[in-house]
Computed example of a mutant assay.
Amino acid sequence: MKKETRIYIAGHNGMVGSAIWRILTESGFTNLIGASSKDLDLRNQQDVQNFIAEKQPDIIIDAAARVGGILANNNYPYQFIMENMQIQNNLIDCALKNNVEKFIFLGSSCIYPKLASQPLKEDYLLTGILEPTNEWYAIAKITGVKACQAIRKQFGKNYVSLMPTNLYGTNDNFDLTTSHVLPAMIRKFHEAKENDNARVVLWGTGTPMREFLFVDDMAKAVVFAIENKLTDYLYNVGTGSDVTIKELAEIIQKITGHKGEIIWDSSKPDGTPRKLLDVSKMHQLGWKHQIELYAGIEKTYEWFLQNIDSFKQVKL
């Protein structure tokens, strides 16, 4: 892969997209293309077509999406299914129409059935019912995976889907109404510490198990997919290990220095009991994560403190 290859990163200002941009730059790629949501509305098909026709990228990385945790998914189901389909469908279709040879679609482990055997293999896709609390987002992402697979089958293009586990890291979203569990906990524990070590109330029972991947490791998986030819249409990207939500809370409590009580509100939903990815396919190709959970949370909390007055908050 030539370092001057034109690479368009959709969503380059988000947590994942900005990490991909940074890692690509560190890897020597010199012709990166980005557009903010103010300059390009990815929900508008004609605008996307005009942009791709003008820029003529060799590779498109779709890191753009409307994202959020259980609360946001429950409260805004229509936006989560419709806007995500609009964004990805416009990018995929316009990539095909403009003869873009390589497309990397980023999804989520929530595409797999709620009660599938663990760890989750790529073959489990569409073999059971989804987790109801995020099925809208999951359905949208499944359509993106299948669209890329259809293009591979019909047109022979190198369109591949990478399904990351729960991502976290620098430039994360710490808005308590829309964020995912890990950044939400960081903010809750920090603010409780600053408030005389007030108690922290967390949703659910703390028993579900989750896998977490530092965003720089995800970005390196994308670079790996750019520099290598992946022969299948779908690959899981994760660490291959998980922790309970209770264990996660205790780690974050320790890193933030909070000394107060943790209260588990079991009247709130837990979500999927366990969601661990089988990452053997990526491991066999030669990619493996590098940053372990404790070190990754330390890096994330450090970034949070440095940006505490201006950290990203998503407004719905």
Rank of each mutant, 00 (worst) to 15 (best):
I60C: 07
R43E: 11
I60P: 06
L40S: 05
N44Y: 07
N44V: 08
Q49A: 15
D62A: 13
L42G: 02
I59C: 09
Q49L: 14
D47P: 03
I61D: 06
N44I: 07
A35S: 14
Q46R: 15
S36C: 02
Q56R: 12
S37V: 03
Q56D: 00
L42Q: 02
S36L: 00
N50T: 08
A64F: 04
S36R: 01
P57M: 10
F51M: 01
A63G: 08
Q49S: 15
K38Y: 11
V48T: 11
A64H: 00
D47Q: 14
D58N: 13
E54R: 12
L42F: 02
L40H: 01
I61L: 08
F51T: 02
R43V: 06
D58S: 11
Q56P: 00
V48I: 06
I52V: 14
Q46F: 14
A64R: 00
Q46H: 15
I61K: 07
Q45L: 11
Q45R: 14
A35N: 07
D41F: 07
F51S: 02
R43A: 09
D58I: 04
I59S: 07
Q49N: 15
N44Q: 10
S37D: 01
K38A: 14
Q46A: 14
K38I: 10
D39V: 05
Q56S: 05
D62G: 13
A53Y: 10
N44L: 07
V48R: 04
P57W: 12
A35T: 04
Q46K: 15
N44M: 07
N50P: 04
V48D: 01
D39W: 03
K38M: 13
N50I: 03
V48A: 01
D47E: 15
P57H: 11
A64N: 05
Q49W: 08
I52E: 09
A64S: 14
S36K: 02
V48H: 05
Q56I: 04
D39E: 15
V48Q: 00
K55A: 11
Q46G: 12
Q56N: 07
Q49F: 14
N50D: 13
V48E: 01
A64M: 06
Q45I: 10
Q46N: 15
A63E: 02
D62K: 09
R43F: 04
A53R: 14
D41E: 12
A35F: 09
I61Q: 03
N44D: 14
S37A: 06
S36E: 00
Q45G: 12
I59T: 09
I52A: 09
Q45V: 11
I59V: 12
N44S: 13
V48C: 04
Q46D: 15
D47N: 12
I59N: 07
R43S: 11
Q56C: 04
D41H: 10
N50Y: 06
A53P: 06
S36M: 04
Q45E: 15
P57A: 11
P57F: 13
N50H: 10
I61V: 13
K55P: 05
S37E: 03
R43P: 01
D58P: 00
Q56E: 08
N44F: 05
L42H: 00
Q56G: 02
V48N: 01
D47H: 12
D58G: 11
A35V: 03
R43D: 06
I60G: 05
A35W: 01
E54H: 12
S37N: 05
F51V: 01
I60K: 05
D39H: 08
D47R: 11
A63T: 05
L42V: 04
E54A: 13
D41M: 08
L40C: 01
A64D: 05
